[in-house]
Amino acid sequence: MSELPPGLAEDPFDYQVTRSGQVRVSRGGREVVVVGGRDAERLAARLASADPDQVQHLLARATGNYRRGNERRPHR
């Protein structure tokens, strides 16, 4: 994958897979989202085989905090 955006490189996501299979995603010490069910199973499997940059992209997508490239910047 590509290099991490500056904001993601400076303040990366953390995650924890619980015994119940949930994936808890946090950033800056605060829990952002808890992924459960089949989505958590798929995410945990992808995270296990991903390199650090891919992990950050996967976690960003899981939280919805991911720029898709089609957003426009507000005019000022």
Rank of each mutant, 00 (worst) to 15 (best):
60 A>F: 00
61 R>Y: 01
37 G>A: 07
3 E>V: 14
53 D>A: 14
31 E>N: 11
10 E>N: 13
67 R>Q: 12
71 E>Q: 15
74 P>K: 13
26 S>Y: 03
43 L>H: 04
27 R>Y: 04
27 R>K: 07
66 Y>K: 04
70 N>Q: 11
54 Q>G: 09
29 G>M: 08
2 S>Q: 15
53 D>L: 05
2 S>A: 15
21 G>E: 01
8 L>H: 04
13 F>D: 03
17 V>P: 01
1 M>I: 11
46 R>K: 13
28 G>Q: 05
25 V>I: 15
71 E>L: 14
41 E>D: 12
58 L>I: 03
30 R>F: 12
29 G>Q: 08
67 R>H: 10
1 M>D: 12
63 T>W: 07
10 E>C: 04
67 R>Y: 09
6 P>Q: 10
58 L>E: 10
15 Y>P: 06
35 V>W: 04
9 A>N: 05
72 R>D: 08
25 V>S: 02
50 A>G: 06
53 D>N: 14
12 P>V: 02
3 E>W: 10
10 E>H: 11
18 T>E: 12
69 G>S: 11
76 R>P: 05
38 R>K: 11
36 G>H: 08
36 G>W: 01
5 P>D: 12
29 G>V: 08
48 A>L: 11
14 D>M: 08
64 G>I: 10
9 A>C: 04
13 F>S: 01
2 S>N: 14
1 M>C: 09
7 G>M: 09
40 A>Q: 01
